[in-house]
Computed example of a mutant assay.
Amino acid sequence: MTLEIVEIIGRSKQGFTRPYICRCGDGEVYFAKGRSATRRGLINEWLCANLAKAFGLPIAPFALAEVPQEFIEADLTGWLRDLGGGAVFASRKIMGQELAASQVAGIPLQLRRDVLVFDWWVRNNDRNLTAQGGNVNLLWLPGQLGRDDDDQKVAEGGIAVIDHNLALDADFSASDFCQTHVFAGDLPDTFSDFLLRQAFSQRLRQALEVWGDAWNNLPPAWGFIDEEQTMPSNYPAAEVRAMLNSIESPDFWNLPV
Rank of each mutant, 00 (worst) to 15 (best):
N44S: 04
R147Q: 01
L139R: 03
M231N: 13
L111E: 14
I72C: 08
R241K: 12
D126W: 07
K53M: 14
W121N: 06
K53R: 15
H164G: 05
E45W: 04
T38M: 09
G146D: 01
L204P: 08
V257P: 15
P61M: 13
E45H: 02
Q14R: 15
S246E: 11
G212P: 00
S173L: 04
W211Q: 12
C48L: 03
T230C: 06
R203K: 14
I8G: 07
P219R: 03
G15C: 06
V240T: 14
F177L: 08
V88M: 00
E239W: 12
P58W: 11
I72E: 07
P142Y: 05
E28N: 14
F16P: 08
N44Y: 00
F194H: 10
G15I: 07
G56S: 10
N245E: 12
G143H: 02
W120D: 03
T2F: 08
A49D: 11
I225P: 03
L244V: 13
R23Y: 09
T130H: 00
A207H: 11
L145C: 02
N44P: 06
R11M: 01
P232V: 12
L83Q: 03
P108M: 15
G15L: 01
G41K: 05
R203I: 10
Q14V: 13
R241F: 06
A60G: 14
P19E: 11
L116V: 03
A54Q: 07
S201K: 15
G223L: 01
T180V: 13
S249D: 14
A105P: 02
F252T: 07
E228V: 09
M243G: 11
N137K: 02
D119T: 04
V161F: 06
S192N: 10
M1R: 12
N137I: 00
I9M: 09
G10I: 00
G212D: 12
V29Y: 06
R241M: 04
L141C: 02
V182H: 00
E156N: 04
L109N: 10
E66H: 15
M95N: 14
E228Y: 02
C178A: 11
G41F: 04
N216T: 11
L109I: 14
A54H: 05
I72R: 08
G134N: 01
I72P: 05
I159F: 05
W121T: 04
F31C: 05
F194D: 11
